[in-house]
């Protein structure tokens, strides 16, 4: 096994994969990991080259949009130790192109698919489970603590859906925030969070929603296990109907 190291950033990862694909005769025998701060860390370090990564990413996603999405989801998963699988996966895509789907049984393709699926499932789930609350100034705020770093794709979805109102989405765990002002979507990090006042209308509407939620269930069919399997308790913290 040949070992390579990178700095742990997304740019660094893409640069390293690019380097390996261009210089190694058989990338399937290469391992890629984050550089450790120890004396004995072996392996060739590849520095990030952010100018080139932009071009590479754009080219990759226009040639293989579906595979690019899978790669993006794996990166958003923030799961450690996926670099080697990603390297092997992207190598496979460079060889087989969009026929990669047929190589599901290859271990790297399998790992990437399984993880990407988990991320895409959470994005889909949060499209439904995110709850906005109306603030005093008429804008809306939604808080969440997702397992994966999904604020970007999720926010893009809501620019389509709730395009006529101002809103913030706040990832409490990662201190990330997105802001939609009706035309433009901004991302940022949050140093401190001051809980804003809710509007008067908000309390009434939340009460209405709780009433609806309670009454729409058929008492004779009560099934809390089924409810939890679709809507795991980790999401309940920010659900109006469950607090």
């Amino acid at each position: 096994m040949i070992r390579y190291r990178y700095d742990g950033t997304t740019e660094g990862l893409i640069s390293a994969i690019d380097h390996i694909l261009r210089h190694e005769p058989d990338p399937q025998t290469v391992e890629l990991e984050v550089q450790e701060q120890t004396l004995f860390d072996e392996g060739l370090f590849i520095a990030a080259n952010s100018d080139r990564t932009d071009v590479l990413l754009r080219r990759f996603s226009s040639a293989f949009p579906e595979s690019a999405r899978q790669v993006m989801y794996v990166i958003l998963s923030e799961k450690e130790g996926m670099e080697t699988s990603l390297l092997h996966y992207i190598h496979m895509v460079s060889v087989y192109g969009s026929r990669i789907e047929a190589h599901r049984t290859h271990p790297a393709v399998h790992d990437v698919h399984v993880l990407a699926r988990k991320v895409s499932r959470e994005i889909h789930r949060m499209k439904g489970l995110l709850r906005f609350a109306m603030l005093e100034d008429g804008s809306y705020l939604a808080k969440m603590e997702p397992d994966f770093n999904i604020i970007q794709p999720l926010s893009r979805f809501f620019t389509q859906r709730l395009r006529t109102q101002q809103w913030f989405i706040y990832d409490v765990k990662r201190s990330l925030v997105s802001h939609w002002k009706g035309r433009k979507l901004d991302f940022g990090t949050l140093e401190s969070f001051r809980a804003p006042e809710l509007s008067d209308e908000e309390k009434d509407v939340q009460k209405l929603w709780k009433t609806f939620f309670r009454n729409v269930a058929i008492p004779e069919r009560k099934n809390p296990g089924l409810q939890r399997s679709f809507m795991p308790m980790k999401y309940w913290k920010y659900l109006v109907e469950k607090t």
Binding site: T164, A217, P224, L226, S229, F230, E241
Partner: peptide
């Protein structure tokens, strides 16, 4: 432009009631 909302081809569930059915 100027309209509220969208539809999703596969549908989206927003909650699950106490009987386990999707809302």
């Amino acid at each position: 432009e100027g309209t509220l909302g969208s539809t999703s081809k596969g549908g989206i569930c927003h909650s699950w009631s106490d009987d386990g059915r999707c809302i």
